[in-house]
Every structure is written in structure tokens, then in C-alpha cells.
Amino acid sequence: MELTNKTVLITGSSRGIGAATALAFAKAGSRVILNARHELPASLKQQLDELGAEYCFLPGDVSDEQVVKKLTKTAWEKFGGIDVLINNAGITRDRLLIGMKTADFDEVLQVNLKGPFLMIQALLKKMYKQRAGVIINLASVVGLHGNAGQANYAASKAGIIGLTKTVAREGALRGIRCNAIAPGMIASDMTAAMPQKAQDQILESLPLKRFGEPAEIAQTALFLAQNDYVTGQTIVVDGGMTI
């Protein structure tokens, strides 16, 4: 797919991987629709403006079905269609399983797994009619091998991988591709808040000896949007963590 003048909708795109992905697609000449539960930072708006990007911001909680229906309808009408959907919105509520509250488990699955399901379901029929479309879901290496203290997060990301493969099978005959990206440790507000000792231990275990950058995940999303013969795959971007 040539990305110039294509329309890309990215959930959870006010910061981190989502913001980096929005900037990457804008640089590639795409129209970008950003989404988050909170307002876009002024710094991100400035970067998009400096790129001369054609973009808009649609706030909303992707775990709310009625919000998703309104959001996707508005997004589709804004630029006359959507070519690429990137389900990036996600949260964590980490705690060891024996102390995890049911509400924490439910909330993580609502946002991380139900949210992408609702977004895909709302847009898939429209993509079927145009017989083209790309869906990229953000999974995690935790969804592949689990992690202590993240039963809810791991379950949601493992579910994303299963959802991705199913959408790829259902959409293939109508020109729809669906893939997932499984990041490892990516530099973010969350990793920066970790105790230095914990960061050092993780870095020591990584063959590349550094955390990944949000822009490196964004580059993977660009690849998946452009390569027309890749579908149903989970691309691991983890600095060798899962070797």
C-alpha cells in the first residue's frame, strides 16, 4: 500500500507508541486521525503542524461501545474512509494474581481486548465494501510468554493475538489484512517510573542492552501497512528479549 493520502486511525495516540506512530504516518504523507481519552499534548500538535500534516483528534474511550460507534462513524466521514486502523490504546493494572482485584482484571480486558474488538467490528463491514483495509493491533511479548504480576495484561495481549489471526482469516478474501506487533521493553513514562535497579536488571537480560524506542514500533507499523503479502502475523520487536 502506498501511504500518501491514505487515512490512518490510531487509538491511544496522545503519547508513547501511539504518538510516535501518528508522526510516522504523517511523515509518510498519510492523513491521521488521533484518539485518546484525554486531550492531545501541545507538543504533539506542534510536531504535526510542523510536518504540515492533515489530521484531526477524536476523543473517546474505546471500551465503550456507544462511544466507538460514534467515533468510527465520525472518523469514516471525516476523510471519506479509513485505510488503516491501528489499535494501540491500552492500560495496565499490575498486581500478583493472588491479590488482583476482579475490577482490575475486568478493566484491563475491557480496554486492551474489548476495545480493539469494538473498533474492528465497527469498521470491518465498511472495509469489506471497499475491499481494502489494514488492521494493526498492539500486542506484547507478555502475551506470548506471560509475566509475573500481569495476569490481566498478559491475558488481554494473548487475546489480541488470537483476535488478529481470526480477523486475518475472515478478512483475507475481501482484501483485508490484519497483523499484530508485540513490543518488548519500550522507553516510556511507565519504564521511566520503574526503580533503577529493576531497569538495570531488565537491561542486563536484553541482548541489545537497551530499551526500544516508540519510533521503532512505529516503523514496524509502517512496514505492516505497506507490505501487501503479510497477514495474520505477530511481529516481535523486543531487542532479543524472547530469544
Score class of each variant (00 low, 15 high):
213 E>N: 10
97 L>G: 11
85 L>M: 14
83 D>P: 09
2 E>M: 12
101 K>L: 13
180 A>Y: 02
114 K>M: 10
233 Q>W: 05
106 D>I: 12
14 S>Q: 04
85 L>D: 10
140 S>A: 03
44 L>S: 14
109 L>D: 09
20 A>H: 12
127 M>G: 07
83 D>F: 08
29 G>R: 03
236 V>R: 15
34 L>Q: 09
56 C>D: 10
141 V>Q: 07
128 Y>W: 11
28 A>R: 12
157 K>L: 00
154 A>Y: 05
10 I>M: 07
201 Q>K: 14
80 G>D: 08
78 K>S: 12
121 Q>T: 00
165 K>W: 00
129 K>F: 00
101 K>E: 15
222 L>D: 10
8 V>T: 12
49 D>Y: 05
57 F>R: 07
242 T>E: 11
79 F>M: 06
164 T>N: 01
217 I>R: 09
80 G>L: 08
202 I>H: 05
76 W>G: 10
66 Q>D: 12
48 L>M: 14
205 S>G: 07
33 I>N: 04
94 D>P: 13
166 T>A: 06
241 M>H: 13
107 E>C: 03
87 N>Y: 11
188 S>C: 02
135 I>M: 12
235 I>S: 11
27 K>L: 03
10 I>C: 10
53 A>N: 10
28 A>I: 06
54 E>V: 05
200 D>N: 12
230 V>C: 15
137 N>Y: 01
17 I>T: 14
110 Q>E: 10
15 R>Q: 13
124 L>W: 10
116 P>Y: 07
119 M>S: 08
77 E>P: 12
113 L>A: 02
40 L>D: 06
133 G>C: 04
186 I>A: 03
8 V>G: 08
134 V>P: 01
190 M>H: 06
229 Y>F: 15
87 N>A: 05
77 E>K: 14
181 I>M: 00
9 L>H: 07
150 Q>A: 01
131 R>G: 04
90 G>P: 03
42 A>F: 05
51 L>I: 15
47 Q>R: 15
156 S>F: 06
153 Y>C: 09
193 A>R: 10
104 D>P: 08
94 D>R: 15
125 K>N: 12
208 L>G: 02
232 G>Y: 04
103 A>P: 02
22 A>L: 07
153 Y>Q: 09
68 V>E: 04
55 Y>C: 01
8 V>E: 05
237 V>L: 07
83 D>A: 11
91 I>S: 15
152 N>T: 07
232 G>S: 04
238 D>P: 06
170 E>Q: 00
84 V>P: 03
17 I>G: 07
99 G>T: 15
19 A>L: 10
156 S>D: 01
92 T>H: 11
83 D>R: 04
211 F>R: 03
72 T>S: 06
57 F>Y: 14
